Amino acid sequence: MSDKTLNLQSETQTLELGTALAAIVRPPLVIHLEGELGAGKTTLSRALVQGLGHQGHVKSPTYTLVEPYELENVSVYHFDLYRLADPEELEFMGIRDYFSDQSLCLVEWPSKGQGVLPPADLTITLSYQGEGRCVTLSSHSTKGEAILEQL
């Protein structure tokens, strides 16, 4: 559909992007987060989850595969598939149950779940650009397109 590219000069700007996204995202929604280790996927996810109203710590679900956040108007599921050995493992954990009409699913390392994960409405790709980050947001649905228009 379409893309939007942003240049973020600091972690603060990454946090601001997450907060801005929180103001416009609505379930059901699937966001894939791509980028190298340390590129800022979890930082962006943390700001988005906190922007939606979570008061506590937002940790990386690297070892648990998923961290759930039950908020007032949305269930947020933050997945980190980095350590996933086989996409079929997602079937055993009941992955399909997480993707409901009330959920916002953030998926880091979505390529590890290829063939099992539902398609993304929005893909956010973070890459190193000197000390900052280049962020490309790509829409894959009308919902994703609406987010890009509002951002």
Score class of each variant (00 low, 15 high):
residue 1 M to P: 12
residue 2 S to V: 03
residue 5 T to I: 13
residue 8 L to H: 11
residue 9 Q to C: 08
residue 10 S to L: 05
residue 13 Q to C: 10
residue 16 E to L: 14
residue 18 G to E: 10
residue 19 T to Y: 14
residue 20 A to G: 13
residue 21 L to I: 02
residue 21 L to D: 00
residue 22 A to L: 12
residue 23 A to F: 12
residue 23 A to H: 11
residue 23 A to D: 15
residue 25 V to L: 14
residue 25 V to N: 07
residue 25 V to S: 13
residue 26 R to F: 09
residue 27 P to C: 14
residue 28 P to Y: 05
residue 29 L to D: 05
residue 30 V to K: 09
residue 31 I to N: 07
residue 32 H to M: 00
residue 32 H to A: 09
residue 33 L to G: 06
residue 33 L to Y: 03
residue 34 E to C: 10
residue 37 L to H: 02
residue 38 G to M: 04
residue 39 A to I: 01
residue 39 A to H: 04
residue 40 G to S: 03
residue 42 T to H: 02
residue 42 T to D: 08
residue 43 T to Q: 11
residue 45 S to R: 02
residue 49 V to R: 04
residue 50 Q to E: 10
residue 52 L to Q: 07
residue 52 L to W: 07
residue 53 G to F: 00
residue 55 Q to F: 01
residue 55 Q to K: 11
residue 55 Q to C: 01
residue 57 H to T: 09
residue 58 V to P: 04
residue 61 P to L: 00
residue 63 Y to N: 13
residue 64 T to Q: 07
residue 64 T to M: 00
residue 65 L to V: 14
residue 65 L to C: 11
residue 65 L to I: 14
residue 66 V to Y: 12
residue 66 V to E: 00
residue 69 Y to A: 02
residue 70 E to D: 15
residue 73 N to V: 03
residue 75 S to L: 15
residue 75 S to D: 09
residue 76 V to C: 01
residue 76 V to I: 06
residue 78 H to C: 08
residue 78 H to E: 13
residue 79 F to V: 15
residue 79 F to P: 15
residue 80 D to E: 01
residue 81 L to M: 08
residue 83 R to Q: 00
residue 84 L to C: 07
residue 85 A to G: 02
residue 88 E to V: 09
residue 90 L to H: 12
residue 90 L to C: 11
residue 93 M to V: 13
residue 93 M to W: 12
residue 93 M to N: 10
residue 94 G to W: 06
residue 95 I to E: 04
residue 95 I to N: 04
residue 96 R to L: 07
residue 97 D to I: 05
residue 98 Y to D: 01
residue 98 Y to H: 14
residue 102 Q to V: 11
residue 103 S to D: 09
residue 105 C to F: 01
residue 106 L to R: 07
residue 108 E to F: 02
residue 109 W to A: 10
residue 112 K to H: 09
residue 113 G to E: 06
residue 114 Q to V: 04
residue 114 Q to G: 12
residue 114 Q to D: 13
residue 118 P to D: 00
residue 121 D to W: 06
residue 122 L to Q: 00
residue 123 T to G: 07
residue 123 T to L: 05
residue 126 L to W: 04
residue 127 S to L: 02
residue 128 Y to C: 05
residue 129 Q to W: 05
residue 130 G to W: 03
residue 130 G to K: 00
residue 131 E to D: 13
residue 131 E to F: 08
residue 131 E to M: 01
residue 133 R to T: 07
residue 133 R to K: 11
residue 134 C to R: 15
residue 135 V to P: 01
residue 137 L to F: 11
residue 137 L to R: 06
residue 137 L to C: 04
residue 139 S to H: 05
residue 140 H to T: 04
residue 141 S to C: 10
residue 142 T to M: 15
residue 143 K to Y: 14
residue 143 K to N: 13
residue 144 G to W: 03
residue 144 G to V: 08
residue 145 E to A: 12
residue 146 A to N: 13
residue 146 A to F: 04
residue 147 I to A: 08
residue 149 E to C: 12
residue 150 Q to F: 06
residue 150 Q to V: 11
residue 151 L to Y: 00
